[in-house]
Design a protein around this nucleic acid. Sequence first.
RNA 1: CGGGGUGUGGCGCAGUUGGCUAGCGUGCGUCGUUCGGGACGACGAGGUCGUGGGUUCGAGUCCCGCCACCCCGACCA
Length: 416
Amino acid sequence: MYYSKLFGKTRFDAPHDADSINAQLLVQGGFVEKLSAGIYQFLPLGLRVLKKINQIIREEMDRIDGQEILMATLHPIEIWQQTGRDKTMTDILYRTKTSSDKEFVLGPSHEETVTPLVKKYVQSYKDLPLSVYQIQAKFRDEPRAKSGLLRGREFGMKDMYSFHETNEDLNAYYERAKVAYMNVYTRCGLEAYILEASGGAFTDQFSHEFSIKTPAGEDTMIYCEKCRFAQNIEVFKGDMTCPKCQSKMLEAKAIEAGNIFKLGTKFSEAFDLTVQNRDGKKVPVIMGCYGIGNTRLLGTVAEASHDENGIIWPKNVAPFQVHLISLGNDEKAQTACQKLYRELLSAGIEVLFDDRNDSAGKKFKDADLIGIPLRIVVSGRTLEKNAVEWKERAATEAKNVVLEEVTAGVKEWLAD
RNA sequence: CGGGGUGUGGCGCAGUUGGCUAGCGUGCGUCGUUCGGGACGACGAGGUCGUGGGUUCGAGUCCCGCCACCCCGACCA
């Protein structure tokens, strides 16, 4: 992609109404644009990151037998009345009426649609276990949207629902989901803790939150650095000695980047979702649900990985893999850079090529702000040595790499 | 929903005790010079000062209402 053609530009200043780091950097870098409080639109750069995150999530959910579906956003009010959540969640529900007074809810979550949907196809224990998921916008009228992408009114979410004949089976699947979730965060360059948290309205047991330690977090977690046992402070009993390894626990702010719940039979009972078991007996299906806010995750990466100059995207979620820069109006440098650009592209490498006729300083500033993990500069100076300058975004030092070895070097670096 | 703050060219801001043609930076356009850490010069385009009302000879500026956004709190499948 030629930077000169890219829709969306970096800004000299951060927007005045953005205090949170993720909002500042993401808007300044041209990744997202705010439409209204808690409502963001994605520009090409931001969407590329989001797609990478989504792909990672898909691969991990598929690996634990999740099947991707896409459910409706507009829900007839009746299904919400059926679970009573039209009342219990009334504060955050966006409701809308047609001209003929038919009422709908903009989906804040999808238990009300997934349960009846599954009921149509599942009658026997032989149809279980089943796990379906989707990646879709959710709508919640948060009393206070805040912190950029971290708490929005319209936001992206991967929500998965699992269906089981027995509690044992749910429990086993739940543990597999934990592993899959940790894989997602690791691949996104994040170090997550699994917190025991309140089960809320669904269960007396703990639910589990996947949280990233950063000052921008809304939650407080009590955690052990040694064995990684952690609890949300809402369920913490007050003894700072870790029950698992006896070491001293610590307290820190954290962003909840996902959570998983054992739903039990609350929804299957509301919609009469049952199967016949081996004995021919009708039993309610046992459910679990598993959520990751993908847009929040994107904001979390920005919060967890940046410096004073901009974002530092982890390799796997970076909008492009290489930020290629040509310097000067030197004909030879331009030609060499164009050639390298094509070479990298045909090797299947994602390149953002800053081909603008601008000063070195401006291009470097923009590269830092955008935060692509590898920057390659071609200039008259580097060409004297038949080389390019190779600088990783997170590094302070640059090195020279011989022109002919760049593409292979990038491939190797990507595989690393 | 309570408390605090902010609304002025695309973006970031200044604008004194009300005063006449509303400025600055950045961005944008044209031309020229530059070319390794936000280059420089010249010319130029771009503003119902959030919104509605009020006070006044005169309101970006004072008063009242409303709206939007940000922060703290409450809330948070």
